[in-house]
Structures are given as C-alpha cells and as structure tokens.
C-alpha cells in the first residue's frame, strides 16, 4: 500500500514538473523556424526565449561584471527576453569556451569572448580555436599600462626604456600566456630588452608586489590599477594605446615615446561559428543599442571600463590580427615554459 503511495507521489511530481515546463518544446520550434527562414528569406523571429551568456571565469571579475551590466539592460533590446549570465570557470577558461564551441548554433548560447580564446588553443590542447566562434560585438577595450611604484627610480617611460636596454628588469603579469605577458614579450622584442617575468595569480598580487617594491614594474590593464594611479601610490609610465585616455590625460602612450605597441584586454561576445547570419545581425544590433545606452555608459564609466564598439565584421578582423600577433611570440612563450 505504501509503495503504491510512493509511486503515486512520484508520478504526481513528474507530471507537475512536465506540466509547468514549456521551454524544451519551443527550443525545437525555433530551430525549425530559423531553418525555414533561411530557405525562404522570411523574417527571423529571434529571440523567442531567454538567452545565456557563458562567462568562462569565476563570478566577480571584470568580464563577469560587465556581462551582468549588459544582461541587466538586455530585455529592452531583445523583445523583452532576458539574458542570464552563467559562470563556467575552469581550465583557464577552456571549460566554458569548449562548452560554447559545442553549443547549438542558434544564437541562444553566447560566449563572453576574451583574449584567452586566442591564447588557449595555442598553448593548451583544446578542441576549438578562435575560429570556432563568430564574434558578435566587442564592447570594451582596456589598454595595458606599464606601472611602477610611486617611489620608483623610473620617473618617465624614457627612464624605463633607457634603463631596460642596459639592465635586466623584473616585471610582473597576471599569469603566463595572458594578454599582459604577451604584451610584455612584444615590448621586450621591440626595445631589445631583457625582462624577468614574474607570473602572479592576478592584479591584486601584482599591485601588492609593486607597492612593496619587490618587483620593478608591472603590466596590467588601466582599469585594474586606476584606483592606485589616481591616488598617486602607483605611477603609470606608459599606455599601450594609440592615444591618451581621457580619464588619464597625464599618462603618455608608448607611441609618443617611439615604441609602436597597442595591446590590452578586450571583452566581447561571440556565438558558435555556424549561427545563421540573420541571428548574428539581430544580436549585434541589440548589443550595439545596449552599448550606446546611457545607463550602460554610466555604469561602465563609474566602474572604470572603457567602452568601444566593434561589430561582427570588424571584431572578426581584430581577433584575426590578434591571433597573428600571438603566433609571432609563440616560440618565445614555449621557451619560457621550459
């Protein structure tokens, strides 16, 4: 008798669950829709359900926070549909990137697309490359900055460049094969210097080592050191950007000092490669709208994330160029890993 009761309850549960779920069924419908849309060039109905941004990092970082700002405004630009931010950390972003590369190319699964998508396939064994994704929109470019402690002997970028040509300098980064490490190696090549790289676990540790005078200099994004730069405890020597930043008018660029180097952390969004073009365009347009939204601009500026917009075409070209740059320093990197 009691067993029958259990069975009944289980059935009740199963029934109630299946009754209140409509998501699974509509999923297939959309696929069919988008296929038939391609054939007959009808209007694509996208999105018809909530979307997901997969952030391949732990919650709380710059990528996560900026994605959540986008997600908050998304309903206004995507027919009222929500974007849910999901963290899928692991393997230095490999886990999340692999997941999206294998996801259904229907535009509902979006990757928070960062420079690690270029470096991971070249430095680790992965099942994807940066070409497994269709870039949709770049929304943030945070140029790298060379910083030293306020009481450092390097007063200007020229001091640093002159000194490092003759002597070994220790420079810390946020980890081996990160964009900052690559930037450092490119710089090292360009000015023919020898850097001793110290690879930390993140910007917090970098700043601590520089403030304490344990390391000569550091490479990180402007956003990560902005508090200390503005407080004057850290001096920013040079920006790896083509022009000075409005919020740091006193910080010169490397270009001004005769070293042509552009580097930094970019943050964007991408979908799996085979996503229909119509869907990519709808998404790109929606993100373009969000990025131009005053609320987005306000939040990004207060948090210190510089905004930039690149659409699917430009973004793809940019990432391809980045991959080329990376390939050039790859032998150096492999040397460093030995």
């Amino acid at each position: 008798m009691k067993k029958v009761l259990i069975l009944c309850l289980i059935f009740l549960l199963v029934f109630s669950i299946s009754a209140c779920s409509g998501g699974g069924a509509s999923n297939e419908k959309i696929q069919n829709d988008s296929k038939s849309a391609e054939d007959s060039k009808k209007e694509v109905n996208f999105p018809e359900k909530d979307l997901r941004i997969i952030v391949p990092f732990d919650p709380g970082g710059a990528v996560d926070v900026t994605c959540r700002i986008i997600a908050e405004l998304a309903p206004d630009y995507l027919n009222g549909k929500k974007i849910i931010v999901e963290n899928m950390p692991g393997g230095g972003a490999v886990v999340g990137q692999t997941y999206v590369s294998k996801a259904n190319p229907d535009g509902y699964t979006i990757l928070a697309y960062t420079s690690s998508v270029v470096s991971n396939p070249m430095t680790k064994t992965t099942t994807y490359t940066h070409e497994s994704f269709q870039p949709v929109a770049m929304y943030c470019f945070d140029p790298d900055v060379l910083i030293v402690s306020a009481d450092s002997k390097f007063k200007t970028l020229k001091d640093f460049l002159d000194y490092s040509k003759e002597n070994e300098v220790s420079i810390n980064t946020a980890g081996i094969a990160t964009a900052h490490h690559i930037a450092g190696m490119i710089l090292q090549n360009k000015i023919d210097a020898k850097f001793n790289f110290i690879h930390t676990t993140g910007a917090g540790m970098q700043i601590q080592q520089i403030l304490g005078g344990h390391v000569d200099a550091g490479l990180l994004t402007t956003g990560e050191a902005q508090a200390q730069i503005k407080d004057g405890t850290i001096r920013a020597l040079g920006l790896m950007h083509d022009e000075r930043r409005q919020d740091f008018p006193d910080v010169p660029t490397f270009k001004e000092n005769g070293v042509d180097i552009l580097y930094g952390a970019w943050r964007g969004l991408a979908v799996p490669k085979d996503t229909p073009k119509e869907v990519v365009d709808i998404l790109a347009k929606a993100f373009e709208g969000i990025i131009a939204d005053q609320r987005f601009i306000d939040k990004m500026t207060t948090a210190g994330y510089p905004i930039i917009f690149r659409g699917p075409q430009e973004f793809t070209e940019y990432v391809d160029m980045e991959a080329k740059n990376f390939k050039q320093v790859l032998p150096l990197l492999q040397e460093a890993q030995k």
């Binding site: 709380g60 902005q226 405890t233 207060t302 948090a303």
Partner: peptide, 12 residues
C-alpha cells in the same frame, strides 16, 4: 567590484 560599480574607488 561592488565598490567600483557604485563609482567608489577603494584606496586612500
């Protein structure tokens, strides 16, 4: 992150 989002920079 929480402070930055509020437009507050931690530090002196």
């Amino acid at each position: 992150g929480a402070l930055m989002i509020q437009g507050l920079r931690p530090g002196p």
